[in-house]
Amino acid sequence: MNIFRLLGDLSHLLAIIILLLKIWKTRSCAGISGKSQILFAIVYTTRYLDLFTTFISAYNTFMKIIFIATSLATVFLMYVKFKATYDHNHDTFRIEFLILPAFVLALLINHELSPVEVLWTFSIYLESVAILPQLFLVSKTGEAESITSHYLFALGSYRGLYLFNWIYRYYAEDHYDLIAIVAGLVQTVLYCDFFYLYITKVLKGKKLQLPA
């Protein structure tokens, strides 16, 4: 464990808390893509299957359980409890266009052709693009509430911080995992446009509004 990884995990946890609090306090999931949340729920449930086979640390197990539970809880809040507030007219991204290619790629490029390993790889590939429906929703409505922007910033920072963790581990531990690194790079790059808008607008107190 190094500082980048810890900050990355905390940033990820913060993003989830921001999102759940936003939905709970406002009793609304307006502006949030249910499609992205479904993808995240698939990502964590397929990645953390090793909960049953491998023990790494209490921290690792605890975080995995939290990520699975909160992603499922978010989907439940959006599609059951606060269904009436869900923006389904704007949330039209076809997630099968992300799920199927991620799965095929995981079958082709992986560390080992075993079910658990292929599912881990699939989850890494899928996570890298899972935010696309959310970014698509923001671009369709042309704006995002500040709280949604904070959520996106924390969520984007998480994989960005992991990139530093991987650089650190490469030098300090001689450890690297190309699949995670390349997917993490793609994932972070997808947020760059949003990061720019967040820093130039949201941090200066303005609403995130896209040019018409």
Partner: peptide
Amino acid sequence: TIFEAPHDEL
């Protein structure tokens, strides 16, 4: 070492 299972990151 290049990657070795298990995956120890989140």
